[in-house]
Design a protein around this nucleic acid. Structure first.
Lengths: 193, 193
DNA sequence: CGTTCATATGAACCATCGTTCAGCATATAG
DNA sequence: CTATATGCTGAACGATGGTTCATATGAACG
């Protein structure tokens, strides 16, 4: 039956090369031939592994998104302040670790499937932040507030900080996390109301 | 000498069409033929106005960026809290007004010329925020703080909020501005330190 | 009117790139 | 060793799209 079964170059290696090219050049400007060349194989062999470019791309996204959510499980909700600090740190860490895939997801935003992915991501993260805020308000650690709006703003601030790093190339991961945490928790007013 | 001098379709109208197409499809997927068709002229006529696609694109960016900075002059620095509120409102307003060009600038970030533009923008805005913060600290309206870091975080929060609206399609301009202002000034802790 | 020339047209040119496929290589089974 | 299934190759194909150019149009001027 099966005479051979393994590809000379495994999918994972192709995806690695594709990640680099897509993130540096964008979807349209990353050529199938580039990807093939980068891993030292022919275009034809590429098409044995993936039926077309779009599928290769989506497989890459799927592969890289796998552990996207798992990181934020098991935050210490009984210590809301701590949970928030950890949440911010995890987010920034993770983003910088997966900066390549993120830069693609931010950019290629006419690809319909990415739109769904992003929305899904927002919903999940918004939920997590809401839980932290709700716990904090109950706890009297946080003031009364509009939890939905505040969660959106916190989400936006974190993503903005990541963008500052990714797109503008500005800032340092650790100190950025701290500054952001301080800003969100304490604000800048001397006599906060 | 000059028998005629006006184009049947003026540049401004071409740029308007180009803006729509570039922002909806991105640089690569917006075709010269599309742009020509949209304003009811031939491809050849397009090349009488612009020497090539790249130049058309850059002219569009330049045209749209003209009043980008002017909006933030003359903030009331003697009232730092007010200045900050106004600054945030202006930024969000302006971004939503120019959402099309912004979505391009965020996306096409391998175009070298855009990189410069973005950096320039950050520097200017960071400076403005710094001025507000410095005035506030002097004024004792704001706490002592690392002005540079805080300015970066405020910039990031505002851009993140705008991104939330532009990319994720989430939020409402006015209430977003208010929520963000509240978050930045007061923070979420009950007993802010 | 006839000449001139800025402006307009769109077919043709050319380069690029996703995709296919006929031919080749080789590992495994019998 | 032979047969065969599997994997590999890269030239060729077809579509696409930026750019050019031979040709046309018609306004202004004498």
């Amino acid at each position: 039956m099966n005479h051979r079964s393994a590809y000379r170059v495994p999918k994972s290696e192709v995806l690695k090369a594709a990640l680099d090219l897509f993130s540096r050049k964008g979807y349209s400007d990353a050529k199938m031939a580039d990807i093939a060349r980068k891993v030292g194989m022919s275009v034809g062999a590429l098409y044995l592994r993936f039926s077309n470019k779009e599928e290769l791309f989506m497989e890459l996204i799927r592969d890289q998104s796998k552990d996207f959510i798992e990181h934020t499980r098991s935050l210490p909700l009984h210590e809301p302040l701590n949970a928030l600090k950890t949440y911010i740190a995890i987010n920034i860490d993770h983003a910088l670790h997966k900066r390549q895939i993120l830069s693609i997801i931010y950019r290629e935003y006419n690809l319909l499937s990415l739109k769904d992915l992003r929305h899904e991501f927002f919903k999940t993260q918004h939920g997590i932040i809401r839980d932290i805020l709700r716990a904090g308000v109950k706890n009297k650690a946080f003031k009364a507030m509009d939890i939905n709006d505040t969660a959106s703003m916190i989400f936006a601030s974190i993503r903005g900080t990541i963008m500052l790093k990714l797109i503008f190339g500005i800032g340092d991961a650790k100190s950025m996390g701290n500054s952001l945490f301080k800003l969100i928790t304490n604000g800048i007013r001397k006599d906060a109301s």
